[in-house]
């Protein structure tokens, strides 16, 4: 790993700001951009890149969820149930990451980057809501007030085992690759489990803090996390996602999504070229 200099700290801070800003604009964590920046562009070992990225994921999850808590948008009961699965997946991923080669992780990242790009390009937009405020949401369902429509949205959770399985896979991928894993959970929760997109995204962002912590503890304890560089990345991502949320609401994200999907295809190709050596 390169030595910590003011220049390197500034570069990583900037990389974090860009990744955090893009993440907030696209509704992602930003890790999917930060890991390749650190690994492919700056030449960090994959595990060091993943470790730094996971710390930024924890910070983003905590900040975003703190702002949303109290508004009933996060389905905390569902989140805490699914955390049992994501934390287990994340623990296993963090342990596995210590035994598999960097080239295998790079190829796996290449596969996941393509999946993320495809999901981004074909995002499903079902509503899955019951517009009857008196409807019974069941034990795990939820109810929140939607400002745009002025309605109280009620929903039930369907196909819970599928949500649990998706959470386990997301947790596993998260600590192996240093990304949040929301991009895997949110489409499943939204398209197949009956959870409205905004509630699915908020609940996923809430869970990701625990998921990333289970992985990051292992990297940190193993000495693969350089605190000074993680500090630069965390502060950068905080600034970037703040900016992205503040100025992103007005921006049209359609072309940004297409552009970033193209970037992810290139990232994927580069990961395969590096990993194939």
């Amino acid at each position: 790993m390169p030595a910590v200099t003011a220049t390197l700290a500034l570069i990583i801070f900037t990389a974090g700001t860009i990744a955090g800003g893009l993440g907030a604009l696209l509704g992602l964590g930003g890790g999917v951009f930060l890991v390749p920046l650190l690994n492919l562009v700056l030449g960090f070992p994959f595990s060091a890149a993943a470790a730094i990225s996971l710390t930024t994921v924890i910070a983003t999850s905590s900040t975003v969820s703190a702002g949303r808590a109290g508004k009933q948008l996060i389905n905390m009961k569902l989140g805490m149930l699914l955390e049992v699965a994501t934390a287990a997946g994340s623990f296993l991923g963090g342990v596995t990451a210590q035994f598999v080669s960097q080239s295998l992780l790079q190829r796996l990242f290449g596969v996941v980057a393509v999946i993320v790009a495809l999901i981004m390009l074909s995002r499903l937009r079902h509503r899955n809501v019951i517009l009857d405020p008196a409807a019974d949401s069941g034990v795990l369902g939820g109810r929140y007030h939607e400002h745009e429509s002025g309605c109280t949205v009620t929903y039930r959770v369907k196909r819970l085992p599928l949500a649990v399985a998706a959470s386990f896979v997301a947790g596993n991928v998260s600590s192996l690759l240093g990304i949040g894993g929301g991009i895997i959970k949110v489409p499943v929760l939204n398209a197949w489990c009956g959870i409205p997109l905004r509630a699915a995204a908020a609940t996923s962002a809430f869970m990701i803090g625990v998921t990333a912590t289970a992985g990051a503890i292992i990297y940190y304890g193993h000495g693969q996390l350089e605190p000074a560089l993680a500090a630069a990345a965390v502060l950068g991502v905080q600034l970037g996602s703040w900016g992205g949320m503040k100025f992103g609401a007005a921006a049209s994200t359609k072309w940004l999504k297409i552009l970033m999907a193209a970037v992810l295809f290139i990232v994927s190709a580069m990961m395969f070229m590096r990993g194939g050596r």
């Binding site: 805490m80 149930l81 955390e83 994340s90 625990v210 289970a214 503890i217 292992i218 304890g221 193993h222």
Partner: peptide
């Protein structure tokens, strides 16, 4: 019980970190 299991999983990560270390 569910949240306690999550807590145990986080403790397991910390234990794994110590073992690797």
């Amino acid at each position: 019980t569910l949240t306690f299991i999550v807590l145990l999983e986080l403790v397991a990560s910390a234990v794994a970190a110590l073992v690797f270390n």
